[in-house]
Amino acid sequence: RKWEEIAERLREEFNINPEEAREAVEKAGGNEEEARRIVKKRL
């Protein structure tokens, strides 16, 4: 699934746990840019 690939990239890029990465992607509706913004806000 594409969402899992996005979550994996976010996890590696921001050094967050898989659960946090998945939550961000879900919140963003699968949009990678939006997920990235969500993760950055949390850091």
Rank of each mutant, 00 (worst) to 15 (best):
N17D: 12
R42H: 15
A21G: 06
A21E: 00
R22I: 03
N15Q: 15
L43R: 11
R36L: 07
N15L: 14
F14W: 12
R36W: 07
E4S: 07
E8M: 14
E23R: 09
N31Y: 05
W3I: 15
E5C: 08
F14K: 01
A28G: 12
A35N: 00
E33D: 11
A21C: 04
G30D: 07
E33V: 06
V25C: 09
V25L: 08
A24L: 08
V25S: 06
A24K: 00
E5F: 12
K40S: 14
K2F: 11
I16Q: 03
R9E: 09
E32T: 07
G29D: 04
K27E: 11
K2V: 10
A24R: 01
W3Q: 15
E33N: 01
G29I: 13
L43E: 05
R36A: 09
R36D: 02
K41R: 13
F14S: 06
E19L: 06
K41E: 12
K40G: 12
I6G: 03
E5L: 13
E33P: 11
I6H: 08
R1T: 15
I16L: 13
L43Y: 04
I6F: 04
E33I: 03
N31F: 04
N17K: 03
E12P: 03
E34S: 08
E4C: 02
I38F: 03
E26Q: 14
A24D: 06
K40Y: 05
G30Y: 12
E34Y: 05
G29L: 05
R37F: 04
I16M: 15
N17E: 03
V39P: 00
A7T: 12
E20T: 10
A35K: 00
N31D: 12
L10C: 01
R42W: 08
G30A: 05
G29E: 11
L10S: 00
V39K: 00
F14L: 12
R42Q: 07
E34A: 10
E13N: 10
R36Q: 13
R9W: 04
E26F: 02
K41T: 10
E34R: 06
K27P: 01
E33M: 08
E19V: 11
R42D: 04
E34Q: 06
A7H: 01
L10W: 01
N15C: 03
N17Q: 14
K2Q: 08
A21M: 03
E26P: 00
E20G: 08
R22C: 07
N15G: 14
F14G: 03
N17P: 15
R36E: 13
I38P: 00
A35W: 00
E13M: 08
K40W: 03
E8N: 05
W3R: 14
N15V: 09
E12M: 12
E23P: 02
K40A: 14
I38H: 11
W3M: 15
N15E: 13
E4G: 02
E26D: 14
L10V: 08
V39F: 04
